[in-house]
């Protein structure tokens, strides 16, 4: 099977976040890592490769530093990758990034599966996977917690996680896009021999022009960015004293007349 895994680099959430001019995070103060959800996707892809053969190709968009995360996936066992590197793509929204990733995937020809995390830890938009499916005109499934591939390597039985501990079981055919939920597996640790091999694995660098990506940056975006800020914590709490009956009455009164929520 030819499997593409889309990997995103995200800030380590323990970093010190500093907003510059309401517009962006000061990235010089931040440590970056691979999006956890994508790590599950890499592991899921490697398990399928071990079972059915083929190759696992990592595709990632972002500045130079994302090669660190791509090589991390190489050290786990992925075969090679494409690094989509263009500042104008980075300035766009999820729609622009998905468009660029699609061009990279199309350049591979004949992909069976595209896998990625159900969402990114930073913006938690959960959009890129489904955008990619739509643009590729592939069927897709989100929140995937179990994958079974038929002997023909074309039919898939997928468990999709719902609320309340329920799963729904779907049958679908390749080619498909699967967005992987955390906990589907236990991602393997890289090995030192894997790390040494990772350095020599092929990583193609592609600019927007190389891939024929059309509208990029703000012009290609479907959303308009306004501002970024830390939510203000207002610590407003009132303890209503007195016996239960009177307190309940006061509470209802406050909800109705002060908060105006009932």
């Amino acid at each position: 099977m030819k499997i593409v895994v889309l990997v995103k680099e995200v800030p380590d959430m323990e970093s010190k976040f500093k907003i510059v001019g309401d517009a962006k995070i000061d990235e010089s103060q931040i440590a970056f890592k691979m999006n956890d959800f994508d790590e599950y996707a890499v592991e899921a892809a490697l398990q399928l490769k071990e079972k059915f053969g083929g190759e696992v190709v990592i595709v990632s968009s972002g500045p130079d530093r994302v090669t660190k995360e791509v090589r991390q996936a190489f050290a786990m066992g992925a075969d090679w990758g494409i690094h989509v590197s263009d500042p104008q793509i980075d300035e766009g929204d999820n729609f622009v990034v998905a468009g660029a990733l699609v061009k990279a995937i199309e350049s591979l020809g004949g992909v069976d599966l595209v896998m990625t995390g159900v969402q990114a830890e930073d913006d938690q938009a959960a959009l890129t996977g489904v955008f990619v499916a739509d643009m590729l005109n592939f069927s897709h499934c989100t929140n995937v917690v179990k994958i079974e591939v038929g002997a023909d390597q074309k039919s898939l039985t997928i468990n999709r996680e719902l609320e309340g501990g329920l799963n729904e079981v779907l049958e679908m055919a390749t080619p498909a896009v699967l967005t992987i939920q955390s906990g589907i597996n236990q991602p393997r640790y890289p090995t030192l021999p894997g790390i040494m091999k990772a350095k020599k694995k092929r990583l193609d660098l592609k600019k927007a022009a190389d891939l024929g990506v059309g509208a990029i940056g703000e012009a290609g975006s479907k959303t308009k960015f306004h501002k970024i800020f830390f939510p203000v914590s207002e610590h407003k709490a009132e303890i209503i004293q007195g016996d239960a009956k009177a307190a309940a009455k006061t509470l209802v009164d406050k909800l109705r007349n002060e908060a105006k929520v009932i």
């Binding site: 790390i195 040494m196 990772a198």
Partner: peptide, 12 residues
């Protein structure tokens, strides 16, 4: 060898 390789080993 390279710093990137060493960084990955230490991270592991």
């Amino acid at each position: 060898h390279s710093k990137e390789m060493f960084d990955m080993a230490l991270e592991l």
